[in-house]
Nucleic acid binder design. Structure first.
Ligand SMILES: [Zn+2]
Ligand SMILES: [Zn+2]
Ligand SMILES: [Zn+2]
Ligand SMILES: [Zn+2]
Lengths: 166, 166
DNA sequence: CGCGATGGCGTTATCATATAACATTAAGGA
DNA sequence: TCCTTAATGTTATATGATAACGCCATCGCG
């Protein structure tokens, strides 16, 4: 079972990170098998790097990490992998940072949304559907048909807020 | 009195656009006078262009519009004006589009948030504080201290939805 | 008034992010 | 096998944003 992402992602306490990455990859494998998508070597490696970083990660940083191990890939290599992963719902883009982060959330009834700590850089995807409900009702009222949401809340996570308190 | 921005901005019906621009500029003049900020010629012109476009506008488009009339400004000219206007709260950045839009909203008790129509390109800043309230309570629960929000809801405005209907 | 401090702007160069276009290779089905 | 399609490689370029430096206008002060 996946724990609420909020806790793991924003927590500063240690966790079994290898297992965390492995879980994400096996979920990805399962999802792709089930949907007839091809999680090729590059795509899988990009996803793995994103999870390994465990923070919103920039495309060119991924590119550098890839090139450190396999030679000289060009930007399209990474961007195509990112496009695939986005499309498959395996990652999200953090628009306010031009960065990408892994998704461990079920989006049947809610859209992606994030708390992002400006101090430690961690981003937590939160799953509550309350925000979606309010947006839906506001949209309804305005006759607006919702397609996609970008919700990124910047601030201080609990741990960083605590250590800031003079 | 400023009407709720939602209606004006997403409405496809005509409005007195010259007055709309003039209002925005006079509000900006007042705010800057009051806060001891200098709304210089360039800054004012950039703000005017943003309002004239009445849609999220890209920095390099503004640059082109400026250059069409005054010669050859360089990117920093526009970006510095944009930084000033953002800082002053006179415009917002639409992160999902790397574009900028004028603000006609009172942000005492709520943070910027937008409905953006993918068909007509219009963006409406909505003022409801319900969304802020829910986010605040979710944040509270997680011990997260909110600093800034990026809320951009993409979809179809009422007018475009109506004309799409089969 | 003369002077120095500051802020705004011009200019050049460069960095950062993302995609277009086309060639090549790999995978999968008849 | 051979054909089709999807994925990847490769080169070039588009698009978005900032660093760094110098000049000049504005303003406070002696
Ligand atoms: Zn997600
Ligand atoms: Zn933190
Ligand atoms: Zn606003
Ligand atoms: Zn529309």
């Amino acid at each position: 079972m996946v724990q609420p992402a909020t806790n793991v992602a924003l927590s500063h306490s240690a966790h079994d990170h290898d297992a965390c990455i492995a879980d994400a990859l096996s979920r990805a494998d399962a999802l792709c098998r089930q949907q007839g998508l091809r999680l090729t070597a590059i795509r899988r490696r990009v996803l793995e790097l994103i999870w390994a970083n465990h923070q919103p990660t920039k495309a060119y940083d991924l590119l550098a990490q890839i090139n450190a191990e396999r030679g000289n890939a060009a930007p399209p290599t990474v961007y195509r992998a990112l496009d695939f992963l986005l499309e498959a719902g395996l990652i999200h883009k953090i628009e306010s940072q031009n960065a990408f982060i892994g998704c461990a959330v079920d989006h049947e009834r809610n859209q992606p949304k994030f708390f992002i700590c400006r101090t430690c850089g961690r981003a937590a995807e939160i799953q509550s559907s309350q925000i979606d409900d309010v947006i839906a009702s506001e949209a309804e009222e305005a006759g607006f048909v919702v397609d996609h949401q970008t919700i990124e809340v910047d601030g201080l996570c609990a741990a960083c807020a605590a250590s800031t308190k003079s």
